[in-house]
Design a binder for these strands. Structure first.
Lengths: 210, 210, 210, 210
DNA sequence: TATGAATGAGTATTCATTCAT
DNA sequence: TATGAATGAATACTCATTCAT
């Protein structure tokens, strides 16, 4: 029995190894330019082995995305204590997202730069659906915060889902901008954190009841 | 002289034809999936001819990006009348950007989904730089508006460049979100325009002096 | 002793299981497209186990062929009663072959479409030889019938081996034609049995002494 | 104009070169085992070039088949003089087929061993249809001979299409048998020609009116 | 200037076979 | 004896780019 368990653990480890290698390669090359050869080499495994654990390049990619979502969701759940006020929760959310972005830059990239290729058509619909659902969870948590703020009378009566999408879009837009243009002087030295905080300042100022 | 001129005109026309064909193909297929064969066929030219006008597939792609920037800049310059108030100018900017996004969805995509592939490494640094500069122009116009608002006493004394980057990031984040998730039910029916206006409402509320 | 015997029986059973699974897969997919994975899965055994019983995919394939030959030979021996006349025996042979072709279409296919791939070079010469010998047995039985007919004075004095080969070739040619072109309208609705009987009619007419 | 013509000729020559190389490879390896790499190498062309002339491996294979049919049809038309008697025509047909089989053994193989793989599904239906039609032509010529013999009163009133299929199947069965088993001693030294003539002797004896 | 034939490196995926357990 | 994880060679097909004409 111990043997079976060890084998299972080894198998999971191998799967994790592949995902680790894939993460590096996908991030540095993008979905299309990344090659299974390179992933296999980086994982120090044969190419055939990759296909024992993942049905296709796309499934491997989407598995990374899914893991990223799961990590982020876990971080959120741990830090968003119900004792905090709505404003604190909003700021907390932003800081958790920023932390995630910092700690797992490759996951962030994979999550965000998902779109290329017909990813959707190349994996099983069930798997795709499951990934999407998990991603939606996050947004629902944010919406809950807005609603809480409105309920408490801290925030004006705004459309909570609209507001959620705006916050999410803004954070992503900022991270994206910094990623994209960070190495030019567009940003004049401003970093993600400063911009995000500034956006929050303005947003919260506009959101709060006078 | 007339002959030389005609030749020059014809040459520019041919270049434009190629870009037109490329736009269609790049937009419908994406950078990686688009093929020079297909562009050549759509342009009713031989593949070799494409290489007389553009050094590589990437340069052709970046040329489209550059043209998109130029179009947007032109639209901005035409609509941002100096007689408007700062708030009006901000809203105008948003509506112009939205109009551009609507009228030239392909250019927008090309501009935004730039990063994948090693685009930057595959074209001459000069050309890349030139494209970036033009893109920066736009942001400078927005910054001018913020500064004007602050100068007029309408806006609080915020960091004008930060605010500019935030606005830009937010609009892009929204458009991106809608592009990316539009066909799922994430958005619950909300469209770009609604979200953008909502974001502006909150931003301006927070930005304005009380 | 009983234990050893049981083990031997089990081993043979296992071998038979594998061949059964292989037959299904080879028949539905053909030699090249069939995979050892699929055979293993259908046999509910691990892939490695297959290699304990058969040295290679090709040997497994040839083993099926050999079994087909054995089955056919057994059918022939049971039905070709020595009391029958030569003409009756010829017709009987045809009907047995047709019955075999009907009952064991997969074996027939395997026997007939043997040649592709370098089957011969991929198994041990001894095994290959043994298979061939068994196949020859059948033809010898047919030759015996012709000789009997000549001896009885029913048939003209033809070269008995030539005649045997012709009969065999004709039957195969017919079955092959029907397999190959059955789904087009080449055959105008004629089936194996009709064609085979017609061929026999003409052959026997030409063979019989006037 | 001369230039265009030369180019056209060169293109056809190149196409012919590829088919020649393909014929060799397909014959020695079979459809499945043959590789485009090997064909390209034998043709002294790059692999990519093959795909400029043929859409797929299967189309290349079927093109060979089609050419074989055309060659045989041409041979038939040249030799089957209307002045000959029905019996002479039957024998002539057999000898032409034998000649084709001798002169173009690889075409024969390709024509005959067509069946493997899903050839039909991998080429355009039109092309497949066209190939089949040409193949049917031949059989119609043979049927015409049988009908002529019946009309002249030489042959008994047999079903002409059945008889045609039988003759065709017999010849193929013989050639196939010789190909397949020629290098064993099954045949006891008998060759295609002897067997074919013998089969015809018996057939014609049975076919002729008494 | 324009062509389009030719190239060949590049890629995802498959599968017979092996071998440590 | 049985397993099944791992291998790695094999293969069809693509496409940006070049170059002789």
């Amino acid at each position: 029995m111990g043997i079976l368990e060890r084998k299972k653990r080894e198998k999971q480890q191998r799967r994790a190894d592949i995902m680790e290698a894939a993460k590096d390669v996908f991030f540095s090359k993008g979905l299309m330019s990344a090659t299974m050869d390179e992933i296999a080499e980086r994982a120090e495994l044969s190419k055939g082995t990759l296909y024992l654990y993942f049905q296709s390049k796309e499934e491997l990619y989407l598995s990374l995305l899914d893991e990223g979502d799961r990590i982020f969701l876990t971080m959120m759940r741990k830090e968003l204590l119900p004792t905090l006020s709505a404003e604190e929760l909003i700021r907390k959310t932003a800081s958790v997202y920023y932390k995630f972005y910092q700690q797992y830059p490759d996951y962030f990239n994979i999550m965000f730069f998902l779109h290329h290729g017909d990813l959707e058509n190349k994996v099983s619909p069930e798997f795709y659906k499951a990934c999407m659902c998990q991603a939606e969870e996050t947004l629902k948590m944010i919406e809950g915060i807005i609603q809480k703020g409105i309920g408490e009378g801290t925030f004006r009566k705004v459309d909570s889902w609209k507001m959620t999408l705006n916050l999410w879009a803004t954070a992503n837009g900022i991270f994206f901008l910094c990623k994209e243009k960070g190495h030019h002087d567009f940003l004049k030295g401003y970093g993600e954190q400063e911009l995000l905080e500034h956006a929050l300042d303005i947003y919260l100022e506009g959101l709060k009841k006078k």
